[in-house]
Design a binder for these strands. Structure first.
Lengths: 222, 222, 222, 222
DNA sequence: AATGAATGAGATTTCATTCAT
DNA sequence: GATGAATGAAATCTCATTCAT
């Protein structure tokens, strides 16, 4: 039985390896440019073996997307658990995003792949999606934060939370799309991070209740 | 003579027809999925005929992009002429965008095709682009408005205009990317328009100078 | 009737113009690279008009070939008239070739086009060709000279004239093929001419009767 | 292990088969007329499979060319090793060429394909070519022989070796080009061989030093 | 379980030739 | 008589997917 366990372990490792390689290729070249051939070569496997683990390109890419979303979600579990105030959650979100990830990789993966797999589907549509997806959990998380901020009197009470969530993620998705078009070394540069922080800040201000003191929206520092 | 004129007209019509078919296919399926074959079939022509009018896929797509940008620019000429205050320009911009176009097609085309033709280039980069393109005129126009709003004390004086332009257009681009993923009849629905208006409003609030009266940022009404 | 004559004249002119343009294109780019489109454009005509004058590419090219051969033949009529000794004919031939043509154009045309039109046919095959072609007259002319040189005791009496003709023209054809692969300005350069003269000389020496004084084979000078 | 060896063998066989089919098509129809489609059909494979073995038409053709040159070079190794006198080398060259090959296929392939791949390059240019090619080894071999013959007092001391090499190979190339235009069964006929021998002989005579006894240039017999 | 090998379907592009006006 | 317009057929090449071993 030790043998079959090792086998099982190896199988899981191989799956991971394929996913990892595909991820890296997507980050390096963009989804559209990644072929099964590329993935197999990078994973040092034959294409046929890749098909053994993933029955098709779409399935494989979808799992990458889900994994990225899962990582994202794992990371922001504290927010989900509701132990934070809205603004603290936002700060936590931002810090987690920038300081911990240090890059936009998860978001890039999520948005790029999503668009690739479901080109006819709106990326951000709280209603239509099958709720088993981790991507939706992300959406829910954001929505929760937004609702909380509204409840706490920081965000405009008239703000439509669902729509604000879409808008918020749209922002991210575009910033991220732009990031993917940059040379890898530039992606994590302070300039990009700064621009993202500014964008984040502007969105928050846009969401804010009229007359509120902006300093409480500050995410970048202390 | 009447004959040659008619011929000329027909030729122009055919060109337009090809561009239109290609445009529709892009709107329906996304750039990546559109092939010359598809375009030819939709235009009820042979592939060779399409090549008679456009010497290559890139050329054809670029023209579609430029056309969309030109239409956009034509429409917003008054803003360019600088006769409006910043906030009036913004209102004009928004009204033109929603009421007159009634859809986001132009923006969809511009962003989708841009990304397709120059996959390695950030879409929105005020510095690097060749300034002969109408797309750049759009960027300049937006930047001009933003600068003006800053000068008029409506926008945050610390706002980085170039970055704000990028952010602004990013927003549009995403909203528009989402729109493209909807069934055509949904695109012009009031709900979409409303959501876009909200997004626009939120961005403006995000750009606004602290403490300013939000009513002056109202774009949707009177 | 003056009108119909002018018409007739114009028709002939246009034919010539087409042939001339095609010739120039062949010389500039090589047969394989010349398209009917190119020819029409250079002749400032529509493709359809070119087809009015020549019912197909092959027909057109064949005529070019024949024309080149005709020019060649015209030029060497004195040799044909048999008024020269063999060696004088050779000198005349060479001088005519180099000094008068100043280039290998006719040969390039003849060989390139021949090979293009009849890729399955040996270029130089005295027996099989349809004897109405001027190309064959060239062959006959050369053969006549070779026979004469044999009769005059300059060439090896055992030389097979037909074969020697083939060999001789093969030589030309290759030199010419090499010439066509050079930039136009190089084609008439003294170096090329010198190399061709050397080649010519070597062939003659190969043809010569044993023991004959080589100085009588000199073609380049006095 | 026997299995993987057999696989390897089959792969090599398949490669060879593709090369062989391509070769035959070139010999039968001329390079320009051979398409990847043709090659695939003849090899009873799909186009994609051909591309599996050769990443492009040029690569495939180049390999054919190099193979032909390699066969040629292998065969004439003794000459390269310099153990022969110039005239013996020539005889060896000729005998190898005619008696062993029995056909001009190798030369046909070499010249046809060379011209096809490098249409802008003179075939025979000792200087410019990249010396890693076997084709160049052939050129060098010929040049070496010619130099040796000059040194041995058989060839005209004023003969320009480089040019003579070009001329010599030009001759071959044309003879060979003519051969390609014949029905396959004719190619090896004694008549062709005889004609080639004559041509060879004539070239040698053309190269010979004045006054030398021609019998020592005899290549065909004893 | 793993893979080398094969392929069908489709993408972009070119060009000789035809035809209605 | 001239031509603008159109096209069928073919060429090169790519890629997701399958299958025998």
């Amino acid at each position: 039985m030790g043998i079959s366990e090792r086998r099982e372990r190896e199988k899981i490792e191989r799956r991971k390896s394929i996913l990892k390689c595909a991820r890296e290729l997507i980050l390096a070249q963009g989804v559209e440019r990644v072929s099964m051939e590329d993935i197999a070569r990078k994973a040092e496997l034959s294409k046929a073996t890749v098909y053994l683990y993933f029955s098709g390109k779409e399935i494989l890419f979808n799992e990458i997307c889900e994994d990225a979303a899962r990582v994202f979600v794992e990371h922001f579990r504290p927010i989900l658990e509701g132990s934070l105030t809205g603004i603290a959650a936002l700060k936590y979100f931002w810090r987690g995003y920038v300081e911990l990830f240090g890059s936009s990789d998860e978001m890039i993966i999520i948005f790029q792949v999503r668009n690739f797999i479901y080109p006819g589907l709106p990326i951000i549509s709280l209603e239509e999606q099958n709720k088993s997806s981790h991507v939706d959990i992300i959406l829910d998380t954001i929505k929760t934060i937004i609702d909380q901020c509204k409840a706490e009197g920081i965000f405009d009470p008239q703000l439509d939370s669902a729509q604000a969530t879409r808008l918020f993620l749209s922002m991210f998705s575009v910033i991220v799309e732009n990031a993917v078009r940059m040379p890898p070394e530039a992606k994590k540069s302070p300039i990009i991070i700064k621009e993202m922080a500014n964008a984040f800040q502007i969105i928050l201000r846009g969401f804010a209740k009229e007359g509120i003191d902006r300093s409480c929206l500050n995410i970048s520092d202390g």
